[in-house]
Amino acid sequence: MKDQLTEAFVSTKAIFRDGGLVIDAPAGARNAALSNRFYFYLMMPAIIVLAAITLYPFFWLIYMSLHTVDLGLADDTWNNLKNWTRLGRDRKFQEGWWLLLKYSSLCMFFEVTLGVMIALILNRSRYEKILVTIFLMPMMMAPVIAGLVWYYMYNSTFGWYHWLMQSLGILGDKSILGSSSTAMIGIVMVDIWQWTPLIILIVLAGLKRVPRDQLEANMVDGAGDIRNFFQVTLPNLYPFLLIAILLRFMDNFRFIDAILVLTGGGPANSTKILPTYLFDVSFSFFKLGRGAAIALTLLAVTIVLGMILVRVFERPSSTRSNSGGT
């Protein structure tokens, strides 16, 4: 039956006759082709809307990156790739990349580590539901509000957190945001506070899917909790961790809300990660062409890093499936 169907589809021929498309095919295949076309027409409105809101801005972004599109009354002018060549000597652009990688790595490391640890603890707790609700609270807050809350807590004149850290001897007279050597820690802490719950939530969902039989079989083989975690739980968590890391990774690459409120990229540019600099260039200096070039580099690197991440996480699962087949 399957072979017959395949043959019918393969024998379908589309020919042009009198300027029109005529399908010369067996009845079953012709119906299938018509059906496909029908579905395509149904999808057309959605495709057009998607193209309008994604492809058009994307090509417009490319156009802007090749032109001088400043906030002026003059028309956009071709500038011989000046927006791109300038990036090579733009120190803030280069520092922005370095700071973004540093910021993302720190956030990711602590959020994933803490998220997995807390999820493991919660998974075994009888108060799981209430604790998860409490842990999720920071995530419910708009990033700008989270930034404002922490801005006040960090303030050296009236901030509770500053007072606590100072009382414990961890901080000196300067607030955590007042020094270029500690400001990055300050903004990373806010990110960890707000987004570790997302990792907890996703990992908890993953933990519910870990097959008990595998765990029990491993325990019969003499595995303890730690060995069980690394040999059974963690491999089963990979797809979930991939989703969590990808989400946070994408978020960090476009994250500016709380940073703008907390430090504005300072002091001395120590927290001016690339998206913050991009915001400055586009909406404070109104150099839209330069901003477009920066945005495109950000987009390209995000896509490449995203693909690498997917590859890295796909490897263990394929290994598993191979070993399972033998």
């Binding site: 960090y154 303030n155 050296s156 004149t157 009236f158 000196g172 007279d173 300067k174 607030s175 945001l177 007042g178 020094s179 270029s180 430090t263 300072g266 002091p267 001395a268």
Partner: peptide, 15 residues
């Protein structure tokens, strides 16, 4: 004030 770099105009006045 040691927190100079974090203090904008409003924060300085608050201090």
């Amino acid at each position: 004030h040691p927190d100079n770099l974090a203090n904008g105009t409003l924060q300085l006045n608050t201090a």
